[in-house]
Simulated scan of single mutants.
Amino acid sequence: MAAPEVVVLDYGSGNVHSAVRALERAGASVSLTRDTDAVLNAHGLVVPGVGAFAAVMDALKAIDAPRWIGRRIAGGRPVLGICVGHQILFERGVEHGIPAEGMGEWPGEVTALPEDAVVPHMGWNTVRPPEGSVLFEGIEDERFYFVHSYAVQNWSFDVTIPEMSQPKVTWSHHGADFIAAVENGPLSAAQFHPEKSGDAGMQLLRNWTTSL
């Protein structure tokens, strides 16, 4: 069986080569590119992200990436967001009191973790995946590596159409509960860095790539 083709979106985000290497170890054929045809037609697209919410959105808009991501989701083609690439899938981010528009695939706002929490939230933490999670199959009790000061701390998206399944939301806790991952049809995202999460992160990427 041929390895699934995965594109890691190259839009200027730092620290993407570790994601490329991790996906290759997970069994994918990986390219780092912003080529439109490759982005639209690969079996899977990974949207990485580090830094500020607004800066990542501006960089994505500069290469028309939100439209590409939207087309893939509409066509049922898998997308995986990582860290700020997870955050920008929500409606907006608020950093230092300044709001920035996100992609709006899910309702919700990225806001600062509580003041009494040590920030950034940097290091290993447990997660609470829901029953039936594909990403966390076999690694439900493992720890994953986080580096962030902002997160989505509320979930308000309920599917009311009987034929559609509810998104699977995974939670973690640092000063408050926050969303650690979401699985919603072709669209998945993780607040943590699977590529830095050792064997557990490798298994999560393998779970995603084998589902493509």
Rank of each mutant, 00 (worst) to 15 (best):
M1Q: 15
M1V: 15
A2H: 15
A3G: 05
P4Y: 08
E5F: 14
G12W: 01
G14N: 09
G14Q: 12
N15D: 07
V16G: 02
V16A: 12
H17W: 14
A19S: 08
A19C: 14
V20N: 05
R21K: 12
R21Q: 11
L23R: 01
E24L: 12
R25I: 05
A28S: 04
A28Y: 00
S29H: 13
V30D: 02
V30W: 04
R34C: 13
T36N: 13
T36W: 13
A38G: 05
V39K: 03
L40D: 00
L40P: 02
G44R: 03
V46Q: 01
P48C: 12
P48Y: 08
G49L: 06
A54N: 06
A54E: 02
A55C: 12
M57A: 07
L60R: 03
K61Y: 09
I63L: 13
D64V: 08
P66M: 12
W68E: 09
G70C: 09
R72N: 04
I73F: 06
I73P: 00
A74Q: 13
G76T: 06
R77D: 03
R77S: 10
V79F: 09
G81W: 00
Q87W: 01
F90T: 00
V94I: 15
G97A: 10
P99R: 10
E101G: 11
M103T: 00
M103S: 03
G104E: 01
V110F: 07
T111V: 15
P114L: 14
E115K: 15
G123A: 11
N125Y: 04
T126K: 15
R128S: 14
G132L: 05
S133C: 10
V134D: 05
I139Y: 03
I139N: 01
E142A: 15
R143Q: 13
F144Q: 01
Y145H: 08
V147A: 14
H148V: 02
H148N: 14
H148R: 09
A151T: 07
A151M: 05
V152I: 14
V152Y: 00
Q153E: 07
Q153F: 05
N154P: 01
F157R: 12
D158K: 14
D158C: 12
D158R: 15
V159F: 09
V159M: 12
T160S: 14
I161S: 13
I161Y: 10
P162A: 11
E163L: 14
M164Y: 10
Q166E: 07
Q166L: 12
P167G: 07
K168F: 06
W171D: 01
H173Q: 11
H174N: 10
A176P: 04
F178E: 00
A180M: 08
V182C: 03
E183T: 01
N184E: 04
N184I: 05
N184F: 13
N184G: 07
P186Y: 08
A189Q: 02
Q191P: 04
H193S: 09
S197Q: 05
S197K: 01
G198Y: 03
D199S: 15
Q203F: 11
R206I: 04
R206L: 08
N207G: 07
T210C: 13
T210D: 09
L212P: 00
L212K: 05
